[in-house]
Design a protein around this nucleic acid. Structure first.
Lengths: 244, 244
DNA sequence: CGGGCGCTTGAGGCAGCTCAAGTCGTGTGG
DNA sequence: CCACACGACTTGAGCTGCCTCAAGCGCCCG
């Protein structure tokens, strides 16, 4: 404990590098025009930047809705429980993405959010957002835009899952990760999966064995390299073609 | 034509019964507190109330996004096209529901919306909504709430489709119709499907034959009565139980 | 009244599930 | 730092639920 304290003191910088101004995903998170004035306003929005370990919960289904969360680093999965007790994953979330939008409607979280690895999020109390929206309409517009995009995403996912064969689903999933992980910096043809085969299968409506088999066959076909959780996309065009 | 004109003249009332004040789905559509003042404001939001025949398009994928549409009567399906050219239905929409929310994000419609039967919608130009939101924050909150609910709906659907067997999906679909059609007035245990078996199958990720078979077996089990498109729910508890 | 579309029902095949066994990688405790 | 143990993953074999193909019925609309 004493040691921890010491380290904490050492790493707290003069400038607060946790501030939005230094955030690497700033452009994606709430990308209002980025002048210094507004960055400070957004910084004021942020109540806290909790650090989560793997398996820590950000919130649970049924919790009162208080805040949206912007993912700064790491990865989060959200899942609900069917009445049958089965756990169903509804989404994976990566840096720059906003979590909790589906809770605004009834003031209560409808899903559980849990960290898949060491993760930092920015907590944005919804009260603050509402207040500031009144002053800066562009913030509200941005929230609206993000929600709209989420609807679109979910609907694309719906289209995909209902009608695609297993290989297509897996290809689609990998391509989606590629697109989203590439947004925040340079193109990322190589990345580490933060979720298990079982979680992917759960999300895609496949068994973990089928996920494994289809990844193996994509490997054999030279579309990707797979080494445990490390994925390298070798032929992105072909991968994308498989998604249609 | 002459006849039509004559009838039109006859049915136009002194009071405008098409106004929101007389709308049967008013409570659901944009349910801000319903004093006379605000009803008039919402009425001003509405640019037009086009009547669609079966198979008429409300908008097409790629169209510039101008307006949201509130469904007054009838039924609408929305669908997208996969790159493979297949048509994939993303949703069915009923009176009181708002269509077009997924287009706000990129100012362009991402799906086609087509009437399944004679349908009346209220056209709400988004510019108007944005302007009025600045004066009446509750309108903006309401839009946000509706979007959030749509996200939640889509995610529930995702959970359903990925992991459910055919019979569960069909049961779930019928139960969803039951809930949504019952919202606007009294409970509706009997209703007419406005879509074909093929459209249901497309939406649920099943073949039309499987939809037909599973509806037959729900019939045999005494859960529902099926007579062509007329559905009567005989054992709602059991139907709901099948959804879990 | 006739034609066509929507629907039902049957038969056969295959994709993906389940069950099972074995390997590998990772994290933990000695 | 090493060894062990468990969880994650791969691969195989057999089974089953859903799809496809096909035929026939019936309702609705022209």
């Amino acid at each position: 404990m004493a040691l921890n304290k010491k380290i904490e003191h050492r790493v707290i910088p003069i400038k607060d590098f946790s501030s939005c101004a230094y955030c690497s995903v700033r452009r994606m998170c709430l990308p209002v025009s980025v002048d210094k004035e507004e960055i400070n306003i957004i910084d004021d929005l942020v109540a806290d930047r909790p650090q989560l370990k793997k398996s820590d919960y950000l919130f649970r289904s049924g919790d009162k809705f208080q805040s949206l969360y912007a993912l700064k680093s790491g990865a989060i999965k959200t899942y609900g429980s069917t009445r049958g007790g089965r756990e169903q994953i509804t989404g994976f979330h990566f840096p720059g993405e906003l979590i909790g939008l589906d809770a605004i409607g009834n003031n209560r979280h409808n899903c559980n959010a849990v960290a898949l690895e060491k993760t930092v999020v920015c907590e944005l109390p919804y009260k603050n957002i509402e207040n500031i929206s009144l002053q800066i309409p562009s913030i509200q517009q941005e929230i609206t835009r993000l929600m709209s995009l989420e609807i679109r995403n979910d609907e694309e996912m719906l289209m995909a899952i209902g009608s695609m064969r297993a290989e297509q689903r897996v290809a689609c999933f990998l391509f989606s990760l590629y697109r989203r992980l590439s947004l925040r910096s340079k193109e990322k043809r190589t990345f580490r999966l933060s979720m298990t085969r079982e979680e992917i299968g759960n999300y895609l409506g496949l068994s973990l064995e089928t996920v494994s088999r289809r990844m193996s066959s994509l490997h054999e076909d030279g579309v990707i390299d797979v080494e445990n959780r490390l994925i390298k996309l070798k032929d992105i065009d072909r991968l994308q073609a498989l998604c249609s």
